[in-house]
């Protein structure tokens, strides 16, 4: 995880058309922890939601052949069960619930060492054309880096 750059997913462990399992390791140090919180460093809950959104988004982008990009527009229910601190290794899962016309819906969760950390139900994404070619290229490069796609697929 590079919290300051919003790069939440380190590695894709498995992926198919409707689900993904990814890994994210919380850094031991980050400017984020200086404010959140002094003496009690925690990954902010919104960044855990972002992590689940990114896992969902990577799965969707692969499903869409990197032709379009999902943008988070809402979710039905979020539960943040446990604190997440420096050095923790997170397993992030996401599953396609529904693919509509111009939107998609996923469920996602994070666990660590078998313990439930957080979940989100019915995370909704608007599927749009890439607003800039360099963003599309960056997403493909990131996908190769994290093992979502092979180099030749990019």
């Amino acid at each position: 995880m590079r919290l300051e750059y919003f790069q939440m997913i380190d590695k894709v462990l498995s992926v198919d058309a409707e689900s993904i399992l990814a890994e994210a390791t919380v850094p031991l140090a980050s400017p984020v922890f200086e404010g959140h919180f002094p003496g009690h460093p925690l990954v902010p809950g919104v960044l855990l939601v972002e992590t689940m959104a990114q896992a969902s988004g990577h799965m969707l982008m692969k499903r869409l052949g990197f032709a379009r990009m999902p943008f988070l527009i809402g979710s039905r229910e979020t539960k943040l069960r446990s604190f997440v601190g420096p050095g923790m290794v997170l397993n992030v899962t996401a599953r396609l619930v529904h693919e509509g016309s111009g939107f998609a819906v996923t469920d996602a969760a994070i666990t660590s060492a078998g313990k439930r950390i957080c979940e989100v139900r019915e995370m909704k994404f608007s599927i749009q054309d890439f607003p800039a070619p360099e963003l599309q290229a960056a997403m493909r490069a990131q996908a190769v880096r994290m093992g979502l796609i092979e180099d030749r697929e990019a």
Binding site: I73, G74, H98, E99, G100, S101, G102, F103, K124, S126
Partner: peptide
């Protein structure tokens, strides 16, 4: 548009279809 997507999602589920909102638009 945001509420409309929620409505379309609910219609898709309730009727077992995929409303082609993009082509309509």
């Amino acid at each position: 548009s945001l509420d409309f997507l929620d409505i379309v999602f609910a219609i898709d589920k309730a009727f077992g279809i995929k409303v082609p909102v993009e082509s309509w638009t």
